[in-house]
């Protein structure tokens, strides 16, 4: 688990990995599993209603994290039972998975904020981009005096900056 340096936005955003408009959607969850933000850019297929979809996504991340924590072949210490609750940064986590139709990149901050970006399967490593999005979140949402922590994000400025940035990277 890496902790992020100062809160200022890094001067130059990470270089784009591919050009085009390949971003599908993005989720931000807090540590209680509340969906703070859901942005959608290109999603032709919808199987569930929004609330169920968010719950399923959070559940998938939770299960995948407990799977990777249990499977971690490099640590010899006793890892406890499968699905044991873990704090952010504890145990082996994952940063992305890929299917034939999409790629999901995942980042968890030390405070338990989870950022999920779903893009085209051929996009490259998005870890730096997710960190940059986390910085945007800190700058535009956390530092907004009108924002109550734990409530859904309704900041126009954050949304526009985010849209612009995701259009640039994916």
């Amino acid at each position: 688990m890496q902790f992020f340096g100062g809160s200022e936005i890094s001067p130059s955003p990470p270089a784009p990995t591919a050009s085009g408009n390949n971003g599908h959607m993005m989720y931000v969850f807090n540590r209680n599993g509340v969906c703070l933000l859901y942005r959608e850019w290109n999603r032709p297929l919808r199987t569930l209603d929004a609330q169920q979809d968010h719950k399923l996504m959070f559940g998938l991340l939770f299960s995948l994290k407990s799977l990777t924590a249990k499977m971690d072949p490099t640590s010899a210490v006793e890892k406890g039972n499968l699905g044991m609750p873990q704090l952010p940064g504890q145990g082996c986590s994952f940063h992305s998975f890929r299917t034939n139709t999409y790629k999901l990149s995942f980042m968890e901050s030390p405070s338990g904020i989870k950022i999920i970006l779903v893009t085209h399967p051929r996009t490259g490593d998005l870890r730096e981009s997710l960190k940059y999005i986390y910085n945007l979140y800190v700058e535009y949402v956390v530092k907004n005096p009108l924002y109550t922590p734990g409530s859904p994000i309704r900041c126009e400025l954050f949304n526009t900056t985010l849209d612009q940035y995701v259009r640039g990277i994916a």
Binding site: H24, M25, N42, R43, P44, L45, L64, T68, M71, D72, C92, S93, F94, H95, S96, F97, R98, T99, N100, T101, Y102, V118
Partner: peptide, 14 residues
């Protein structure tokens, strides 16, 4: 987000 998904091919953990 699009139809025709056949499941996870690659999971990259830490």
């Amino acid at each position: 987000p699009v139809s025709g998904c056949l499941g996870i091919e690659l999971l990259q953990a830490d």
